[in-house]
Design a protein around this nucleic acid. Structure first.
Lengths: 256, 256
DNA sequence: CGGCATCGTTCCACGATGCGGAACCCACCG
DNA sequence: CGGTGGGTTCCGCATCGTGGAACGATGCCG
């Protein structure tokens, strides 16, 4: 291998297989193709994963899909798990109300990690792809700015010390401009971002606060800039997002 | 190896590690002990899992915990995922209302698979352990009986063809007795089970029906038999469980 | 303040373990 | 009945993981 390739390779492959299956049930050959591994190896890995309950054959067919045992592991995620589970119904409502996709994210170091997303009912054919599982630098997206806005000043300045990557011409790469934006975010309780991460994509986000008054997650709604937000509709939309975030926070604080 | 030990062993170990971490953050040595693998191997596996985002170091500390990327995989579970996510808030309410633990399960072959469980607030010190991730034969538990009650006759008789394992003296191991019970379940819309799986443990379950009118999951509430159900309280409790199941079903049918 | 108990990391030679190409089998289809 | 494509099995090779042990960092306690 030209690159050192750190780590245990079977594990790499196993997860490649799991991620491939996350898209829906697949047969052995498809898995092999999707995960870039030889067919026989794919079969062996699938068998091993099946023995662990991480995947299972869909009854009748011979394709594989993710197995329910993953949930028993995922439920060990603790607070993160609670957040996703609790947020889901509210996201469904929010997506329905605004007609665009809604999602939750958490902060992971200097990036946002999107952990769940729900599409509106009767989604418009023009829709934003599902970002679940993606990590994006904090300054480039609305959820990230929400996280940044509540960081203690010294921590924040450590983030600003490094150069801010540009994704589009609109990305805020200047520390001063970003600080000004964060001031707005703190004032409004939400962050509006247009075309800063991807051209033609707009989003609003608001933060979720747990019992210890800490920001543990953020929710957002996003859609194509040409129709979202409709001019003059920004406040209504932002209000809905803030309200949803508040509701989720309340549930989180109430129910364990 | 005395036993053939089928499967890829690194994968076995990787999942042993993940399951160990499902209980909460652990250091390398603890993981090694819990998963019964040498320390250096544990470190290597953890590093590999970390590279996949399946685990992460808790910031500041050096212990590891499950990583958010698991969610991006779990969200590929499709309907099962939706069920858990949607059921959670209702389970929280239900557990609070009845003061005992509530859970969701799905059917997996001839077993029930518990996929989530929530404890009541201020739980009594005497509580039932968390069954999440466990599989139990259908006839022995309330959720299982709910699933059995709606199986087509021919499928059901295939299950009854094999001997029914006894877990306690109260387990229904006689096909006729079980059929009679299932009749009750169909009539009532719920299943009450006392001491049939474990002595001193009682539970009620009701089924969750999706848009295609299929039973896709069941919820239950269970507690120690000495206090649950309180005499004369069976109907109220069962009613609450049925209502919760109906609510979850409705949400499931509405929101994607 | 210094020594001891832990915990994590690194190293390396050994060999078990997983690898994967190819042959085989089966189910489905034309 | 011959062909195609997916799944499973086989088996010799060497890769990849293994784990004991030594090292280094931490932090607790005396």
């Amino acid at each position: 291998m030209s690159s050192p390739t750190i780590g245990v390779q079977v594990i790499r492959r196993a997860f490649a297989v799991l991620r491939a299956l996350a898209g829906g049930p697949l047969g052995v050959s498809d898995v092999a193709t999707a995960a870039h591994i030889p067919k026989s190896t794919a079969a062996r890995v699938l068998a091993a994963l099946a023995a662990e309950g991480a995947v299972e054959q869909v009854p009748g067919e011979r394709r594989y899909r993710l197995g329910p045992d993953l949930l028993s592991i995922a439920s060990g995620l603790g607070e993160t798990w609670d957040i996703v589970a609790i947020a889901r119904p509210t996201l469904v409502d929010l997506a329905a109300e605004l007609g665009e996709a809604a999602g939750v994210s958490i902060r992971d170091g200097w990036t946002v990690q999107y952990v769940d997303q729900v599409e509106p009912p009767n989604p418009n054919p023009v829709q934003v792809r599902d970002w679940t599982g993606t990590r994006i630098p904090l300054h480039a997206v609305s959820s990230g700015q929400v996280f940044l806005a509540q960081l203690p000043a010294p921590v924040l300045s450590r983030y600003l010390a490094e150069p801010l990557e540009a994704f589009t011409p609109a990305t805020l790469t200047d520390a001063t401009a970003l600080l000004e934006r964060l001031r707005q975010v703190r004032r409004d309780g939400h962050a509006w971002v247009r075309d800063e991460y991807s051209i033609g994509l707009s989003s609003v986000a608001a933060s979720i606060v747990d019992a210890r008054a800490e920001v543990v997650a953020a929710i957002h709604v996003h859609g194509p800039s040409y129709r979202f937000p409709n001019p003059g509709d920004e406040d209504r939309i932002a209000g809905a997002v803030r309200a949803a975030a508040a509701r989720i926070g309340a549930r989180l604080r109430a129910g364990g």
